[in-house]
Computed example of a mutant assay.
Amino acid sequence: MYNVLIVEDQTMPRKLLEIYVNEEKDFNLVASISNASLALDICKRSKIDLILMDVLTELGNNGLDEALLIKKYDSNIKIIIVTSMPEASWLKKAKENKIDSFWYKDGDSNSIIDVMKRTMNGESIFPLDTPTIQFGNASNHDFSERELDILRELITGDSNIEIGKRLGLSANTVKWYIQGLLDKTGFHTRTELAAVARSLGIAIKWVCFHKDATQLGGVF
């Protein structure tokens, strides 16, 4: 039997994951928490075989970065990232952080249980791409990497000059990209563009600090 830790800040998804795990004879639920920063301590105190880890967790703690710390502590602990947000960089970062598998929440118990069993059997399960989300007149798959970078920076509310400095672009180039995003989506203002991108989870930028790391960067 495999010991499982759930890290999920939203009550309903967390309760559903608890039900799924408790109904499976091969898995034993050890703990279910809402803050990713507590996960490593639980791993140090209890025998954990598998973690279902959300990305956005309570108090702004980033599950992807916490997962990296756990992997450094014990690489034998299997970790499945679970999220509903289509932020494209998370798939890439999960692979870079040696996360075992990645699952988009869809309410299907058979899906997550299958990923859990296959992950414990040594497979690495990753979706080919993020889910398709309608974003104004476009979808999240209609944008280049640079356009997504601009979207993430827009969420900060900073000026074109400040955004340009971080991305190595001129303020006029940033303005040009923003206009292109407005044209594609049909939104009328940069504020509307940023707000909808953030609410749909298409673009998320971190600005939090970790107790064991330097600034991770982003606003959420």
Rank of each mutant, 00 (worst) to 15 (best):
Y2E: 04
Y2F: 13
N3G: 00
N3R: 03
L5Y: 01
I6E: 10
I6W: 02
E8S: 01
D9H: 13
Q10I: 11
K15A: 07
L16F: 13
L16P: 06
L16G: 05
L16C: 01
L17T: 02
L17H: 14
I19M: 11
N22I: 03
E23Y: 14
D26Y: 05
F27W: 05
N28Q: 14
N28V: 14
L29I: 01
S34L: 01
S34E: 11
A39H: 04
L40W: 07
D41I: 05
K44V: 07
K44H: 09
R45S: 05
S46Q: 15
D49F: 13
L50C: 01
L52E: 10
V55Y: 12
V55T: 13
V55L: 12
L56F: 11
L56H: 08
N61R: 11
G63N: 09
D65C: 03
E66D: 09
A67Q: 03
A67T: 09
L68R: 15
L69N: 12
L69F: 15
I70L: 12
I70C: 11
K72R: 15
Y73C: 07
Y73Q: 02
N76L: 03
K78W: 09
I79T: 03
V82T: 07
P86M: 02
S89C: 09
S89F: 15
S89E: 12
W90N: 04
L91M: 08
L91S: 07
K92H: 09
N97C: 01
K98F: 14
I99E: 02
F102L: 11
W103Q: 02
W103A: 12
Y104F: 15
Y104M: 10
K105D: 09
D106M: 05
G107A: 02
D108R: 05
S109P: 02
V115E: 06
M116I: 08
R118N: 06
M120I: 05
S124A: 06
F126N: 04
P127A: 07
P131K: 08
T132A: 13
T132H: 03
Q134F: 15
Q134M: 11
S139N: 11
H141F: 02
F143N: 04
S144F: 09
E145V: 00
R146P: 01
I150Y: 01
L154W: 09
S159W: 13
N160W: 02
I161R: 13
I161Q: 09
G164S: 02
G164K: 01
K165H: 08
L167H: 13
L167Y: 12
S170I: 09
A171T: 02
N172Y: 13
I178C: 02
G180H: 08
G186H: 04
G186I: 08
H188N: 07
T191S: 10
E192Q: 14
V196I: 10
A197E: 02
R198A: 07
G201P: 04
I202W: 03
A203K: 00
A203R: 06
I204H: 14
K205G: 01
V207I: 13
V207P: 03
V207M: 03
V207S: 11
F209S: 10
F209H: 12
H210E: 06
K211D: 06
D212K: 14
A213G: 00
A213R: 15
T214S: 10
T214W: 07
L216K: 15
L216S: 11
L216Y: 14
G218S: 00
F220A: 00
F220M: 12
